[in-house]
Amino acid sequence: MIQIENLQKEFTIHHLNKTLHAVRDISFTVEKGSFLGIVGKSGSGKSTILKSIYGTYIPKSGAIYYDSETLGKINLVTASPREILHLRKYEIGYVSQFLSVMPRTTALELVEQALLETGVSYEKAHEEAIDTLKHFDLDESLWNNYPNYFSGGEKLRLNIARAVVKKPRLLLLDEPTASLDNASKLKVRESIEKLKHQGTTLIGIFHDLEFMDGLCDEVFTMRKAVVNAYEA
């Protein structure tokens, strides 16, 4: 599903005249329907890999081949912004630790909109949004409120709900359980298991190794901007 070949990412900070090496010579493959966990210290380049797959970062060199349902095999490093937008809309989801929303958009609208942009009817979007919010135990009294007032955990659950509701083919998880309590983590875990069962391919970064246990099919450990260890 995803094949990364010799990926390198550098950040050139012009005003400091400095180049930071975030990721050097990374290669790995993720099979369809499997879950790859990436672990490593802060600054080791874990998020850089996910953001390079999602198109937020422009790699310096290397290739990221993705088997798209609609575009065929495509190199995400050289794909056009319009192709990336298409994949984000229909195939690839991303969950970060942070929730960015339109002002004055309620939690329910936020999840509905994720589906509406893919062309489903309002009725279906509404129904599925409610099911997903219920699944993540987001209190019904919050559905019609603005997420700006939510706690960190509530925001995170809403963020995951927004990505999961679209049933993406590939889901990228950037520390989605960082500030969740155990009950919420369990919900996320259930949801991930369900997505895996439906055939979604997942790549996730977690600090919580216990959470990953039994969930990931493969684990990469990263150190100093290089994949140093590989466990299967």
């Binding site: 950040f11 050139t12 012009h14 005003h15 198109g55 937020t56 970062y57 422009i58 990336i84 937008l85």
Partner: peptide
């Protein structure tokens, strides 16, 4: 030019930075 999140998170040009 590029995706908005790319321009904001990984700007390439000195002025955009």
């Amino acid at each position: 030019q590029g995706l908005t999140d790319q321009i904001l998170e990984d700007p390439q040009h000195a002025y955009t930075q």
